[in-house]
């Protein structure tokens, strides 16, 4: 393939110019992540300096007006909502992809895939609104107050389901045909083939899907904000309201000043660190050892 090196052979001055312009645009695109990290750190510094990192975990409560900055309840909120939704969405999503590939007749598989793509495109505020007017009242009938960890988990599940389904779908499509023919020749029934041939072969793709959906679950803001009740507490049951890190930022950014504002940027930094770790993990898994 033609590459950058061959450019030195070009006799045209415009090529040189074009190349520099393109490098300029790519540099801008590439440095946005750095800019984000730098600005988060700069804005978070006052809090890290005045409050110090340990106090974000040891303060008695989250009362920024009184100078108390305990992020632990929000961390647990994020963690619970994420774990619950990933636990439900993963089997559901993988089974959906299996349905598309090995169970559904072709006339059903195509529309089903389109439906999942449509679900992926629906904005989070729409999910949040639907959760608020439909799910929350339903949950309130079972066990008041209604806005709760359970509502958050259910909404998040619907939101991250397309991510894992589409990833699983893509990795099932990459399983070599001869594996399936081999299994058929051995007389393996359908589910046994899927369980012992398809899943191991598609392992790395499935893991990447789980990591990506986890990232989405951590970063989701609006839907969670609308259905979770936003009480700062460590929940004792799934019917208790919770507040996540992201919702906390969205709620308090509007009026936060000084150290309070900086503390919100600290939680932004925490989120960013989680996402970077997940992206690196996904890259590490998907590189190379596909059938390992």
């Amino acid at each position: 393939m033609t590459s950058l090196r061959s450019n030195t052979l070009s006799r045209w001055p415009t090529d040189e110019l074009l190349c520099w312009v393109l490098r300029g645009t790519a540099t801008i695109a590439g440095t946005i992540v750095l800019l984000i990290v730098v600005f988060l750190i700069v804005e978070a510094l006052p809090a890290l300096y005045h409050v110090g990192l340990p106090r974000f975990f040891t303060d008695p409560s989250w009362h920024p007006a009184d100078g108390l900055y305990n992020l632990t309840p929000m961390l647990w909120g994020t963690l619970f909502a994420m774990t619950g939704s990933v636990l439900i969405a993963t089997p559901l999503g993988i089974l959906s992809a299996v349905f598309c590939h090995y169970y559904a007749p072709p006339t059903l598989a195509r529309p089903y895939r389109r439906l999942i793509e449509l679900l992926a495109g629906i904005p989070s505020v729409v999910y949040g609104f639907w959760g608020l007017v439909v799910l929350v009242p339903l949950i309130a009938e079972i066990q008041p107050p209604g806005p709760s960890l359970l509502a958050g988990i259910l909404i998040l599940t619907i939101m991250i389901l397309p991510t894992i389904t589409l990833m699983a779908d893509a990795s099932l499509a990459n399983v070599p045909q001869q594996y399936l023919r081999g299994a058929a020749a051995l007389g393996l029934p359908r589910w046994a083939t899927i369980q012992s041939v398809v899943f191991p072969a598609a392992k790395s793709g499935l893991c990447t899907g789980v990591i990506l959906e986890t990232g989405r679950a951590i970063g989701e803001t609006m839907a969670i904000l609308m259905v979770c009740g936003n009480v700062v507490q460590i929940p004792s049951s799934i019917f208790d309201p919770i507040r996540t890190l992201t919702a906390n930022i969205a709620l308090e950014m509007a009026y936060a000043l000084g150290d309070h504002r900086a503390a919100l940027f600290v939680s932004g930094l925490v989120l960013m660190a989680m996402i970077v770790a997940l992206v690196l993990a996904a890259e590490w898994i998907s590189r190379g050892r596909v059938y390992g």
Binding site: A29, I36, V279
Partner: peptide, 17 residues
Amino acid sequence: RSLDVLAGVPSIVFGLF
């Protein structure tokens, strides 16, 4: 790689930035 990370950044963090 930087674009991969950028694609995963939560929208609220974009808001902060």
